[in-house]
Structure formats: structure tokens, C-alpha cells
């Protein structure tokens, strides 16, 4: 379609008037104290004062158990998989042995088995997140329900948050995640069209499946964990997470740093543990 100059000016003029009208509607909404997020919440959406996780590693037995949780997350969130490039890998949830998950707590008399026992690690959604504090653009921020979010459209890729996070939970897109691996296969095997892919040069991490919570679903890792990952409201004394925390001994990663992580680990294990 081609238009001449006169037509173009007409359309441009009309859109300007309409644009101004649009602005006044927005202003009237602002006066009413409405925010975009409050416009139409899904009634099925899950809400909490402070979301948190309990990870019971005694319920994670085989390699398959860990892989199922990680794959569920990475597949639906279009996390690129680098086969041979560990330096540039992107990961939201993965396994780490006890001695690496809780450095400084292992000791010489601990059984080899326990030292090597794998834990699932992901963003702790800290109550006082160091990453949020340092971000120069508020690209990473804490929601009212405690989820530490990442706005991949605002992130400038300075990686201050990666330096600040004491849990190594954040990944940077050093290479184009929509691109191909060294062997020519796409980094994202099967794209989930309902979740955005990222562009190069931004930081990403676990977002506690905010998109699933808003339609009433549990986080993907919890859903497939066979009860090893329990998700719930830490501020609600009757929630399942609080009941577990009240009855079992739980530990958190690096609590001494004061970031107040929201993942509680139940070690459990064998009778002699």
C-alpha cells in the first residue's frame, strides 16, 4: 500500500489527537490509584505475602529426580542448553553436592556419601536480596509477594547482580540464546511459545514461575518433584511450608550474610544421618 504526503499528514494528525486522548484516559486512571497489575487479576491466581520453598533432599534419590526438576524448568522457560560450553552456560535450577551448596559446613569426619549428596539449588528469592540492592536500573526487583524478578527488557547487562548474589543463582547471556550451539543444533531445542526467549547480553534467573502462579499453577519444579519441593506462603502459619519448617530441622544457604534466603532445606536422609 502506498500513500501520498497529504494522506500521511492526515493520518499523523489524527493519531496525534487520538494519542492525546489516550494520555488523558491514562491520567484519569492514575488519579483513581489503579496499577496495571491490578486491572484484571486471574481469580485462580495464587497469592502470598512471602513465597518460599522447602526442598526435602531425602525425597530426591536418583539422578532422574534432579534432572526431571531442572528439565521441567528449563524447557518451559526456554533456557538455552550449551553442550560443551560450561563457561557460558545459562541455568536456573541445578544440582550441587552438599559441600558446594553449604561451603564451610563440611568436615573431615563427614561420610563421603553425605558430602557428595546432591542438593537442588536455584534463586533463593531472598527477603533482603543483594542483587536488587546493587542493580543500577531496577531491572531486578522484589515483588510484594517476595519473588525476586528480572526485567530482561530493562537489564543493561552490567552484571553487578552476578557479583553481588552470594548464591551464584544468576546467568548472563554471553552468547545469543536464540542461536545455535557449536554443533549447529539450536540452543533452545523446542521453544515454548507462551514464554519469551531472551536476547543476548542480559542477565536471567529463576523467577519462581510467576507466570504459572498467576494462573493458579505451582512452580514447574515443585509440580514434578514428587513432593521434594514444596512451595507456599512463609508468612502463613498454616501453609505446608511452615508446617514442615515447624516440625523438621531445616537449613538455609549462607544465612550469616543476612540476605534471608527463602529456600529451606530438609536434610532428612537415612536413620543415622
Amino acid at each position: 500500500m502506498s500513500i501520498n504526503r497529504r494522506q500521511f499528514l492526515k493520518i499523523a494528525g489524527a493519531s496525534t489527537v487520538l494519542g492525546l486522548g489516550g494520555a488523558s484516559v491514562v491520567n484519569s486512571l492514575k488519579r483513581g490509584g489503579l496499577e496495571a497489575s491490578q486491572m484484571s487479576p486471574d481469580p485462580k491466581g495464587l497469592v502470598a505475602k512471602r513465597w518460599g520453598f522447602v526442598v526435602d533432599v531425602s525425597k530426591l534419590e536418583s539422578e532422574e529426580d534432579y534432572k526431571r526438576c531442572a528439565d521441567a524448568c528449563h524447557n518451559i522457560h526456554n533456557v538455552p542448553v550449551f553442550k560443551n560450553d560450561k563457561l557460558h552456560e545459562v541455568k536456573w535450577i541445578w544440582k550441587e553436592p552438599f559441600e558446594n551448596t553449604f561451603p564451610g559446613t563440611e568436615h573431615e569426619y563427614m561420610s563421603h556419601e553425605f558430602k557428595e549428596k546432591n542438593f537442588l539449588v536455584f534463586c533463593n528469592h531472598c527477603a533482603k536480596p543483594a542483587c536488587v540492592k546493587v542493580c543500577p536500573t531496577k531491572a531486578t526487583f522484589k515483588r510484594k509477594d517476595g519473588i525476586v524478578m528480572q526485567d530482561m527488557h530493562r537489564c543493561i547487562g552490567c552484571r553487578f547482580c552476578m557479583a553481588a548474589c552470594p548464591f551464584g543463582a544468576r546467568s548472563f547471556n554471553y552468547l545469543d540464546p536464540r542461536g545455535k550451539d557449536t554443533d549447529g543444533t539450536p540452543l533452545i531445542k523446542v521453544e515454548n511459545k507462551t514464554f519469551p526467549t531472551r536476547m543476548i547480553g542480559v542477565v536471567e534467573k529463576c523467577t519462581a514461575c510467576y507466570e504459572r502462579l498467576s494462573i493458579g499453577q505451582q512452580p514447574a519444579c515443585a509440580e514434578v518433584s514428587n513432593g521434594a519441593i514444596v512451595f507456599g506462603d512463609l508468612e502463613d502459619p498454616n501453609s505446608e511450608v511452615r508446617k514442615i519448617i515447624a516440625t523438621k530441622y531445616t537449613i538455609r544457604r549462607k544465612p550469616e550474610l543476612g540476605t534471608q534466603p527463602s529456600i529451606y532445606y530438609v536434610i532428612g536422609g537415612s536413620e543415622h544421618a
Binding site: 530493562r154 552490567c158 548472563f172
Partner: peptide, 16 residues
């Protein structure tokens, strides 16, 4: 050093 240098003005647009 920036991953998204075109967004450098975000530091000014969203002062933190």
C-alpha cells in the same frame, strides 16, 4: 563491558 550498551541511558531514566 555492558551486555546491552544501547540501554546505557536506563541508568539515568531509572535512577536508583
Amino acid at each position: 563491558d555492558m551486555g546491552q550498551p544501547m540501554r546505557i541511558m536506563n541508568v539515568v531514566l531509572h535512577p536508583t
